[in-house]
């Protein structure tokens, strides 16, 4: 039925690719962390706490990237009924939710020395929080239904509705903030960043995405194997009569 979606073929392909990406991931993390922790300057205002950025910003990037990944997977799953695309979305969601949580937690830990408070109802923070809720909804919908195929397609509809809404939510939340609060917001896009800081940031950004690729492949293999077991059980049961 789905010639291009052969799970066994996918498993074999994943096994070939995985060692290479794992190697690249280790390399990227090692060099990125070296630059981030030792070979980059402390900020003249923020001091050493600026190094929080190297954990925080790539996590925030990943949270958005993975949401987009899920949306594309959902689209493919709904239009072409591609079973592996459903699994890709399912496998990616907890990783995305974790990165979003990481971005929120590191952000608030960074915020304490910076602004003197753990949480601000700032537009950017609030919209990331909302994205975290969308991730939770997607995961919960997968969990709520017994039939995986149905659960996956329902969750895919939600993911697509969410992707339409996400820019609106982000836009409205940022607008709301400027209306209600004085802008006490640190902005990344203000002064250009020195290259010694930009280099580790970008390397770690890539490292995070590579890490995502590794884990999502692992999780997809896991899902495929679970289905294999499930199918074997069913066949064994029907042979029993």
């Amino acid at each position: 039925m789905h010639k291009f979606a052969n799970p066994a073929k996918f498993n074999r392909l994943a096994d070939i690719i995985l060692p290479w990406i794992i190697g690249l991931t280790v390399l990227a993390f090692a060099s990125g962390l070296y630059y981030a922790l030792w070979d980059s300057p402390a900020d003249y205002q923020q001091g050493e706490s600026v190094r929080m950025m190297y954990v925080h910003v790539p996590a925030a990037w990943s949270s958005m990237f993975i949401y987009l990944f899920i949306a594309v997977a959902s689209f493919v799953a709904l239009i072409w009924r591609h079973p592996l695309a459903l699994l890709a979305g399912k496998a990616a969601a907890p990783i995305g939710a974790t990165f979003t949580a990481l971005a929120l937690i590191t952000g608030s830990l960074w915020g304490k020395p910076m602004w003197g408070t753990y949480w601000q109802w700032d537009g950017r923070m609030t919209s990331v929080l909302v994205m975290f809720f969308l991730y939770l909804g997607y995961i919960a919908l997968w969990e709520a239904m017994e039939d995986d195929e149905k659960a996956g397609r329902a969750a895919s509809i939600l993911a697509l509705v969410g992707v339409v809404n996400l820019p609106i939510i982000k836009f409205s939340v940022e607008w709301w903030n400027t209306l209600h609060q004085s802008a006490s917001v640190m902005r990344m896009d203000g002064p250009a960043m020195p290259t010694e800081m930009l280099k580790p940031l970008l390397i770690l950004g890539i490292a995070y995405q590579l890490y995502f690729a590794v884990v999502v492949l692992w999780r997809m293999k896991l899902e495929i194997n679970q289905r294999k077991i499930d199918v074997m059980r069913r066949i064994a049961m029907s042979d029993e009569g």
Binding site: G137, L158, N165, S172, W175
Partner: peptide, 17 residues
Amino acid sequence: VLMSLLVLPLYIPTLIF
């Protein structure tokens, strides 16, 4: 309960405006 989890984030822009 699940429905609230899905819908409430989508309600935010309406509430704000």
